[in-house]
Write a protein that binds this DNA or RNA. Structure first.
Lengths: 180, 180
DNA sequence: TCCGTCATGTAAATGGTTACATGATTCG
DNA sequence: CGAATCATGTAACCATTTACATGACGGA
């Protein structure tokens, strides 16, 4: 029965904050959830069509001709709560960097250094992005019910990024001490 | 040209340590790379057939009738190095727990607490698993070229799990202080 | 006028899991 | 013998990305 419930959940949840076009939806997901979620147009538009057909979202004419601003219906909000209550499924992990590092003796210490240094700078960039997001979120009004939850997910990213940096520093030191 | 290079890489890399059957391959990946990689039979067997056809691995009769022990050929080792040098691609993130927490005001603080508590105990279990892996790896002979690299990836898991636990503790405290 | 952005969608290919079918071997 | 495990594979399905086609609108 569960036909791509993951995407449905993300779409319904995003629309619960604010009605949007499919285009804006993708942008909002990229900007606000980018650290832990992603959707492509090829997922979003079919999902919106399906949800529309099921009466879970309604499409109103937007400013531009041909643009559809989607909003949650009552049924859509009920479905959202239902999907939210399902236990989260995590996609099987696939970390190409760690896979390569595990077999690092094939690659040599120098190439591994590069791998880890890249991961470090990615974490640094993530930290920077999160700092911006944190400032923006902290500027939201105190009474906004979403605010504390947004800050929690930002904090999750920060913890994870800081851990990645600490690990990278430790690992770069180890690699420097390796022969080869 | 790249036809499922991710699986090919994992398979060739694993076979570079030791010749194995497809069954053992899946098990080895699950046990040793489980924290950051996964492959299913539906991937492994077609991959082995393809690699065999391309002359990258050779199949010898195993102990049991019908079992095929695969080992790297010279061409396979060359291909492995080639794949290792490609820049690692990371699968787009999809963290169902954080998605739900971001929209936590739909769910309520109590349900969010559960979500975070589950994540915490998963991280704890991971830490436990990594402790076992660390002991086993540290027991390997000092001169084993893979040993330092294995320890690096174990350390990555440990950093990540500890960060998850610290975040969960902080977040549980925040959730307790929330009304609703 | 032309470019960049906003906007909607489709088609093809890929990547991957799950479930199933089949059978040998080992061990209690 | 019967159950668990080892072992190989296939088929169906699902999820997802990528690339493409199309066009409206705003501003330099």
């Amino acid at each position: 029965m569960p036909r791509s419930t993951q995407t449905d959940l993300a779409v319904l949840a995003a629309l619960s904050i604010e009605p949007m076009t499919g285009y804006a939806l993708r942008d909002a997901i990229r900007v606000h959830l980018g650290a832990f979620w992603s959707e492509s147009f090829g997922q979003i538009y079919p999902a919106l069509a399906r949800l529309r057909a099921d009466g879970l979202v309604a499409a109103d004419e937007g400013d531009r001709s041909g643009s559809n601003v989607h909003s949650l219906t009552a049924a859509g909000r009920a479905r959202l709560v239902e999907l939210m209550r399902e236990t989260p499924t995590s996609t099987p992990p696939r970390n190409g960097m760690l896979l390569r590092l595990f077999f690092g003796s094939v690659l040599g210490a120098a190439a591994c250094r590069e791998l880890v240094a890249d991961a470090r700078s990615q974490a640094l960039a993530m930290l920077d992005h999160l700092a911006t997001a944190r400032r923006a979120t902290e500027a939201e009004p105190d009474h906004l019910p979403q605010r504390p939850y947004w800050l929690m997910t930002i904090s999750a990213g920060e913890h994870s990024a800081r851990a990645a940096i600490a690990w990278a520093d430790e690992t770069l030191a180890t690699l420097d001490a390796l022969p080869d």
